[in-house]
C-alpha cells in the first residue's frame, strides 16, 4: 500500500492503536507530534478496553472522530484473539469514517523506539515478544530500527543471543536473552510516528499470524462397544 507522502504535510490527524501484546495502546498524532497517548492498565482485556481508550484519547487530544484523516494499526505478530480486536476495529472504523488504514508490524514499533527513542541503542539488535507455548515472535534490526530479518515464531533457546534484546521476550526468557533493553511493549505513539513520519514499511491491515490454526481432521469414528 502506498503512503500518501508525508501525512504531516497534509495536516493529517492520525489515530493509532496496537493490540498485539497483552496490553492495548492508543495515540493521536496531529501531523506534527503525538498529542495524546494512553495504555490499558489491565492485561488481556483488549475487547473491553480498546473502544473506551480510543474515546478517551480523542478527548485528550481535544478532537472529534470527524477530525481524523487516517488510522494506523499494529498488525502483530501477537496472540490472535487480541490482535483481531485491533484489526477489526481499525478496518471497521476506517470503513465508517472513510479513512485510509495503515498496518505496521508490531515488532517494528518496538524497534523504532529502541533505535530512535530517548535512549537509542546505536547498534544492531533483536526484538522479541511473547508468542506463548514457550515460543517468541522475533525480528532483527539495524541501528536505525530498519528490519533485517523476521518476523518469525521461534523457541527462545533456538534464537539465543548475547546482543541487546528489546520487547517482552527478553523479560520472559533471560537465559536466552541476557541483555534486556527498553522498550518492553510497543507504544501507539511510536506506531503513529512510524506512519506519519514514514519510518517503517506500511502494510494492509492484515494480521501477521505466523501460525496455522490448531485443527486436526478427525480419523474414523471412535468405537463405542
Amino acid at each position: 500500500m502506498l503512503c500518501p507522502r508525508g501525512l504531516s504535510n497534509l495536516g493529517g490527524v492520525l489515530l493509532a492503536f496496537d493490540t498485539a501484546t497483552p496490553y492495548v495502546t492508543v495515540a493521536v498524532h496531529d501531523g506534527e507530534i503525538v498529542v495524546a497517548e494512553r495504555r490499558s492498565d489491565q492485561r488481556m482485556r483488549h475487547g473491553e478496553q480498546l473502544a473506551p481508550l480510543i474515546e478517551a484519547v480523542l478527548a485528550d487530544a481535544g478532537i472529534v472522530r470527524q477530525d481524523l484523516t487516517a488510522i494506523a494499526v499494529g498488525i502483530g505478530p501477537g496472540p490472535f484473539t487480541g490482535l483481531r480486536v485491533g484489526l477489526v476495529t481499525a478496518r471497521t472504523l476506517a470503513f465508517v469514517l472513510e479513512l485510509p488504514v495503515y498496518g505496521v508490524c508490531s515488532l517494528d514499533v518496538v524497534a523504532l523506539e529502541a533505535a530512535l527513542g530517548d535512549r537509542p541503542l546505536n547498534v544492531d539488535f533483536t526484538v522479541t515478544t511473547d508468542a506463548r507455548r514457550k515460543e517468541v515472535y522475533l525480528a532483527t534490526y539495524d541501528d536505525r530500527g530498519r528490519r533485517l530479518d523476521g518476523p518469525d515464531v521461534v523457541r527462545p533457546e533456538d534464537a539465543a543471543t548475547d546482543g541487546p534484546v528489546a520487547g517482552e521476550g527478553a523479560r520472559l526468557y533471560p537465559e536466552a536473552f541476557p541483555d534486556p533493553r527498553e522498550p518492553v511493549l510497543p507504544s501507539a505513539g511510536w506506531l503513529a510516528r512510524a506512519v506519519a513520519e514514514e519510518l517503517a514499511e506500511l502494510h494492509d491491515p492484515e494480521p501477521l499470524y505466523l501460525r496455522r490454526p490448531d485443527a486436526v481432521a478427525p480419523g474414523a469414528p471412535k468405537r463405542v462397544s
Binding site: 483488549h46 475487547g47 480498546l50 473502544a51 480510543i54 474515546e55 472522530r65 484473539t81 483481531r84 480486536v85 477489526v88 476495529t89 481499525a90 471497521t92 472504523l93 465508517v96
Partner: peptide, 12 residues
Amino acid sequence: LVGVAAAKALAL
C-alpha cells in the same frame, strides 16, 4: 469478540 469489537467501532 470479533463481532463485539466491530460493533463498538461502528458505534464509535
